[in-house]
Design a binder for these strands. Structure first.
Lengths: 247, 247
DNA sequence: CGCGCTGTTGAAACTTGTCAAAGTTTGTGG
DNA sequence: CCACAAACTTTGACAAGTTTCAACAGCGCG
């Protein structure tokens, strides 16, 4: 590549990285910032990183320095314990943040793995704290994001603690559906990026149980399932199933 | 009460409320603050509140204004869903913070209930954000506290998703033991403040299952149990049980 | 002293996990 | 571009763990 073409390309990359140009503004950190504040944020988001399917964004045990905003693609996070058990703690899609768990001990406590080719913005955390001290709105928004993560986790605890297999899967699918919808995709038809095993791990079920639940949902005409392609045929039915009292 | 006695009492209360005099400094927000910063924090922690056993500190749906630091006593938080199911999402003891879940939507998403007579410091959240912009250390510490809550929740998800009944109870007891120890109490002997039903709700089990697990632990000479009074006889045994591979 | 709440224990029912086999899709190298 | 291997999914039969239902015991409180 000729030298000036390379330079032009670099400039282009920087433009592409800028929060002020990002079409995820409404989903990500920049919510509600004034134009001049957005410029400051642009400087903050220094690096972008591309990952191929299967790549680790970070691993448990690594030193924590940045949080990451998913620009495109799909991730999972999982925790491992010594005795070999592991669990998927979350799936992250466009506009969602990764790495908040690392703040407490300055070491990542889980693995973050790309489930498809993806791109993230790295946000050095100390810079974010610095800018938060200057921009009230950014500070408040960041606190909300962390708090939302806590609320989400409580929802998962509820799911794992009180729901049975089919209720869990229904809740999971409805949640995905909603998140696709919020990103402008069809809420009724989408591709799962994760395996039955990964869904099971997230929902506290074995993969066979997940598979059986899918089959049963098909029999009940709640879903059309072809591999990882899902079409929701009866949203209300799923909701009803999800909130159906145990017993 | 004579007027000046009342005044003296008021002054005394204020002194008692001050973070700079609080013997929980090492557990709570003031960690690592310089003396002049501590003074600013004192102004922040405006109110103290006493609660009797069974009182609600806040309820799901109420407007969020403050977070609370437990000064003494013991709390549980729980979430309810429409269909009647509920789950205990956590137990909070001295020095721990309550209310972080309310930041995201400015409405509390769970109930916080005193399990014994308790006292809390109310920290108006907008003031905390203001002071965080001035005091770097406080900001960073607060972020760590929120992140730690996320990590804790991941631990509970792990417990609910991958452990069986007795492993869960062992993990729960070891966690309590550790927290009592950190507060200068015996790690081996303590009173549970919660019922079997509340433990079960937290662990995603029925109260009968919890009761059976306690009985079994006694048979195995891991514990001595008398009502809610617990003595741990074999910590290593509990740890081994907790990390024992499923199957 | 008895009532109510909490906790314990037993037996049966139910849900999910385990193991095994076979079908399907995806990816790779020839 | 095909063939084969590897990974993933589905399904069945059986086992294990947990819940449900029921009865009863213990403690604290009025």
């Amino acid at each position: 590549m000729p030298k000036d073409a390379a330079t032009a390309r670099l400039a282009f990359e920087i433009v592409k990285t800028a929060c002020s140009n990002c079409n995820l503004r409404e989903l990500c950190l920049p919510i509600g910032l004034a134009p001049e504040e957005l410029k400051k944020l642009d400087e903050l988001v220094s690096t972008r990183r591309r990952l191929k399917r299967g790549d680790y964004l970070y691993r448990a045990g690594q030193v924590f320095e940045s949080i990451y905003a998913v620009r495109s693609g799909f991730f999972k996070t999982d925790v491992l314990i010594e005795d070999g058990r592991d669990q998927v703690t979350g799936f992250q899609m466009t506009g969602e943040l990764l790495g908040l768990d690392g703040i407490s001990s300055e070491i990542h406590t889980c693995n973050a793995i790309a489930l498809e080719d993806s791109e993230v913005c790295a946000i050095p955390f100390s810079h974010l704290e610095g800018l938060s001290r200057q921009i009230h709105t950014l500070q408040h928004h960041f606190h909300k994001v962390m708090s939302r993560e806590i609320v989400r986790d409580h929802g998962v605890m509820m799911l794992l603690g009180t729901m049975r297999a089919e209720e869990r899967l229904a809740a999971f699918l409805l949640n995905l559906s909603q998140r696709f919808k919020a990103r402008g995709y069809s809420p009724a038809e989408f591709n799962l990026r994760m395996s039955r095993d990964e869904i099971g791990s997230y929902l506290g079920l074995k993969l066979e149980t997940v598979s059986r639940a899918f089959s049963h949902f098909q029999e009940e005409k709640l879903l059309a399932v072809h591999q990882r392609k899902i079409r929701i045929l009866n949203t209300e039915g799923l909701k009803k199933l999800m909130t159906h009292q145990r017993g």
